[in-house]
Amino acid sequence: MENVNFLYELFGKNIISVTLIVSLPLVFVLIYALIAILAELKVSAWIQERLGPMRTGPWGILQPIAEVVKLIQKEDITPDKSSKLLYNLAPFVIFTGAYAAFAVIPFSEYFVPSGINLGLFYVFAIGSISALGIVMGGWASNNKYSLMGAMRSVSQLISYEIPAAMAILSVVVLASSMNMQEINHQQTGWFWNWNLFGGPGSWTKIWIIPFTVLLTFIYFISSLAETNRVPFDIPEGESELVAGFHTEYSGMKFAMFFFAEYANMFVVAAILTTIFLGGWNSPFDTFLQGPIWGSFWFVLKAFSVVLVQIWIRWTLPRYRVDQLMYVGWKVLLPLSFVSFLAISFYVMLK
């Protein structure tokens, strides 16, 4: 399929449009992170029967900005015995991993920074970079808690990437494409065309719907583990590891970790939206369907997923490290294999 990008259409493929395309998601991420921080504060407050921030600006909407300003002002401490280069590099590596994934996320029918054919594969490969950053930060801090957090993080990421990969692979089989834009185009129409409900097809698809719903949940749970969110936040489980791999970080570098976590939350939510929830398609056929409305639907869906992540965070306790492995290897992995086989059968018979 022709990769359509409205900025290329407008300006042609030159340095200006390329710069704009590269920086547009960054602007989006910055704004999104502020909104997500506010959402986290407010949602947690509502869950806990509090008001949340109310003093900074009307209804506390300036609180995220206040927090960012506070973090910038803080002293930037580098521990004496740390490995300086790795220690200072780690937050940026993590953020690079999170931001690089935005390269293939289709925000709208006419805007995807790079519509490469191996989009899903690329997202998956680039997602592991954050694990590298976590190990760098944990190891270089020269702190036992950080080291343990980093170790946990790696084992967790490896265990949960496999079920997540199986879930994505099932969709790839179903859609016969790895291009995220192509997968989106296939899901056009009413919401029952979404891959969550077995993708487009005749009534015979009904028997795979349980499997696709299951895969959606598997991917969602794995994504929680990949972004280190509760109930899988053991790499930074504050009750035992103080703050895990970012124990020693302060100021702006800590803010980078924070920022990368929120960016990562959006990335996994965006992938979930793209491959299971119809991406930028309107749920109601042609109702509000179009390139601009498309970005609205996309952000709405992805942000809803982020809100669910926040909701879960403030509701559930944390798993222990061995129980986390158990869930990953003995529950999610077999289920994802079964679903994968079922979907392969369906595609073969179609």
């Binding site: 947690s44 806990q48 029967e49 509090r50 936040d233 009750s239 306790p317």
Partner: peptide
């Protein structure tokens, strides 16, 4: 105890 297990919300219910 719930907080040690990672559950933050019951903590605030009790404190209220």
């Amino acid at each position: 105890f719930g907080l040690d297990a990672g559950a933050f919300t019951p903590f605030l219910f009790f404190f209220r």
